[in-house]
Every structure is written in C-alpha cells, then in structure tokens.
C-alpha cells in the first residue's frame, strides 16, 4: 500500500529530525488525500515514540530530541488548521509553561523536560532560565496553560518554587494550574512542604505527572 510507505517516510523524517523533509512529505500525503489525523497518528506519532525509546536507551540525546520536536511542531502548524476544518479535535494534549527559576541558570534538565513534554504531545512555552515567579504566572494566564513546570537546581533557588505558588495564590488563580517542581535540589518532601501538585526526579516523571494532570495518565 502506498500510504504505508508514506507513513514509514513520515516516521523516518521525525526520527532524523529533518523538519523540511517532514514538511515535504506531509504536503505529499495531503495531496494524496490522506487524512491529517492519519498522517499524525499513523506516520508521525510512531516516529516520535521511537525517538523517545532511543533516548531512553541512551542511543540518541538532547539534540536529536530537540530536532524531532521541532520537526513535529513545524508539521503541526500545517496540519492543525486542517484538523479543525475537518471537525477533528485538537491534537494537543495540554499546555505547559516551563522555566528555570529566578537566580538559577541551570538549563539542561529543563530543556530535556521540555523536549520530552513536546514529544508527548504537549505544547510547551519555555520561558528560559532566571525566570521571575510572577513571569511564570503571567505567561500561564496568557498562554492558557494547564501546567506550570519549574526547575531549580540549587538550595539557594528552590525557595523560588514556593514563590511561584505564592504568586498564584496572590492572584487568586492557584486552582487553575497544576504546579510541578523538579531539578537537583528539589525533593518530594520539599514539593509537599510548599504545596506543589507534583515532584519528578526525572524528565520521564515530568511527562507522567503532566499526563496525569490533564487526565491522560
């Protein structure tokens, strides 16, 4: 079947993180009349799953994940309007505002968490590092996020995770968001003490918690 071959090529383009190639194959598939939902579910998603598995086996690393996620995002820009046209639902699982807290510039763990969330279908707004507590809240409001994920690696910066929760409370929107915390210095005990909704030791935990938060776990 020709569409099987196309699905295979879509998957390969995701795995190789080749955004332009993926876009070209997506266009080709659409021209051939393949439904956008099939392009995603039968072509791109298996590719994403494979990327995740290879990452877990230490066969590929952050750059390959970032490129796969970028390719995915590029294709979704084309596919999403068509999905909506066709009356299909959103393909996005949920929205996450992510960042490393104020005073802390450790970025790698956060980036891995971001890439893994994207690969699991979340739309992620990455605020970067050294992010003020209030900026997490403002962006979450603007972005209509479901989840706020805050990374902090130092004993001197984890207090900023508590600060995010205090800012949410001060604006009266604490209940609107699931707040996840992580990073070297955070622990389950710490998360409980500040009233966070979840703590994850690894990026895999972050994804599991996020899926649970949006009722997909």
């Amino acid at each position: 079947m020709p569409s099987e071959a196309l699905y295979q090529r879509l998957s390969e383009a995701i795995i190789s993180g080749d955004r332009n190639k993926l876009l070209a194959i997506v266009e080709e598939a659409l021209r051939e009349g393949i439904a956008p939902s099939d392009i995603i579910e039968r072509g791109m998603s298996p590719g994403m799953r494979e990327v995740g598995e290879r990452f877990a086996r230490y066969e590929i690393y952050l750059p390959e994940m970032m490129m796969a996620a970028e390719a995915w995002e590029g294709a979704m820009k084309v596919l999403e309007p068509r999905l909506l046209e066709a009356g299909g639902g959103q393909k996005r699982v949920g929205r996450v505002v992510l960042g490393t807290v104020k005073g802390d510039i450790h970025s790698i763990g956060k980036n891995i968490v971001g890439a893994m969330l994207k690969m699991s279908g979340f739309e992620v707004f990455d605020l970067g590092v050294d992010v003020a507590a209030s900026a997490f809240v403002t962006k979450a409001e603007e972005f209509e996020a479901d989840i706020i994920a805050a990374s902090a690696l130092m004993s001197t910066t984890i207090p900023q995770q508590r600060s995010i929760i205090e800012h949410l409370e001060a604006r009266g929107v604490r209940q609107r968001y699931c707040v996840l915390v992580g990073g070297g210095s955070a622990t389950q005990e710490w998360a409980d003490s500040i009233g966070a909704d979840g703590y994850g030791r690894t990026a895999g935990d972050a994804v599991a918690l996020a899926l649970k938060a949006v009722g997909k776990g």
Binding site: K102, G103, D104, S155, T156, T157
Partner: peptide
C-alpha cells in the same frame, strides 16, 4: 560546602540573604 540558611532563614540567591 554550601550554607543553606542564615539564622534559620533559607538563603535565597540574589537577595541580601545570599
């Protein structure tokens, strides 16, 4: 090592406690 508090106040980097 790294000190975590000043007279029982948790140290916050970038603040006077830092």
């Amino acid at each position: 090592p790294c000190l975590t508090n000043v007279d029982g106040r948790q140290i916050v980097g970038g603040s006077p406690l830092g």
